[in-house]
Simulated assay, not measured.
Amino acid sequence: MSDKLIFNCTYGKEEPERATLPFVAANIAAATGQDAIVLCTIEAVWLGTQGGTDGIAQPGLPVLADLYAEFVDNGGQVWLCGACAKPRGITEEHLVKGSTIVGAAKVVEEVVAGAMTVAFA
């Protein structure tokens, strides 16, 4: 069984609360030594790009740019859905520290290996 935790994030700038909450939970996991991944799909793929978290702040929650950096510093990984990144023109050269473009096969591999998933709807 895997000890990975995958937190799915589907929202970006248009929904600051929904964009931030998966990073809050994932950062708690990473800070306590868990293998934490935020899987960004749909509009959330922009969060792993240069300037992608700029200006995203929900009252009562950490500023997303700061939280993103803290999460990565705590050992967290940000996976961007390749099928979502491609039609948006997002390539490796657009990524910030800690983010990687992955295919669905990688996600399925981790889930089959026992990774637990958390979704914020």
Results as ranks from 00 to 15, higher is better:
Glu43Cys: 01
Gly48Asp: 11
Pro62Asn: 12
Ala30Val: 02
Leu39Met: 14
Val63His: 04
Gly55Glu: 05
Val45His: 07
Glu70Gly: 11
Glu70Tyr: 00
Glu70Pro: 01
Ala57Asp: 08
Gly60Ser: 14
Leu64Pro: 03
Ile28Thr: 14
Asp35Gly: 02
Pro59Cys: 09
Pro59Ala: 13
Tyr68Gly: 07
Thr53Cys: 12
Val45Arg: 06
Gly55Ser: 09
Gln50Leu: 09
Ala36Ser: 13
Thr41Glu: 08
Leu39Arg: 05
Ala29His: 07
Ile28Leu: 07
Thr49Cys: 14
Ala31Asp: 09
Ala29Trp: 05
Trp46Leu: 06
Gly60Ile: 07
Asp35Met: 02
Asp35Phe: 00
Ala65Arg: 09
Ile37Cys: 02
Trp46Asp: 13
Val38Tyr: 03
Asp66Lys: 02
Gln50Met: 08
Ala44Cys: 09
Ala69His: 10
Thr41Arg: 08
Leu39Ile: 00
Gln34Thr: 06
Ile56Asn: 03
Asp35His: 13
Leu61Thr: 10
Val38Arg: 01
Gly52Leu: 07
Thr32Ala: 11
Gln50Ala: 14
Ala69Thr: 15
Leu67Trp: 11
Glu43His: 13
Val45Leu: 09
Thr49Asn: 06
Asp54His: 03
Ile28Ser: 01
Ile37Phe: 07
Asp35Trp: 01
Asp66Cys: 03
Ile42Cys: 01
Asp35Ser: 12
Leu39Lys: 07
Ile28Trp: 00
Val38Pro: 02
Pro62Tyr: 08
Gly55Tyr: 00
Ile56Arg: 05
Thr49His: 05
Ala36Gln: 04
Cys40Asn: 15
Asp66Phe: 02
Ala30Asp: 02
Trp46Arg: 13
Asp54Trp: 04
Val63Glu: 06
Val45Tyr: 09
Ala65Leu: 05
Ala69Asp: 15
Gly55Thr: 00
Leu67Asn: 08
Gly60Arg: 10
Asp35Leu: 05
Pro59Ser: 14
Ala36Ile: 07
Ile42Asp: 14
Glu43Trp: 11
Thr53Phe: 01
Gln34Tyr: 03
Ile56Phe: 00
Thr41Gly: 10
Ile42Thr: 13
Gln58Asn: 12
Ala31Glu: 12
Gly52Tyr: 03
Pro62Ile: 12
Pro62Gln: 11
Ala29Ile: 05
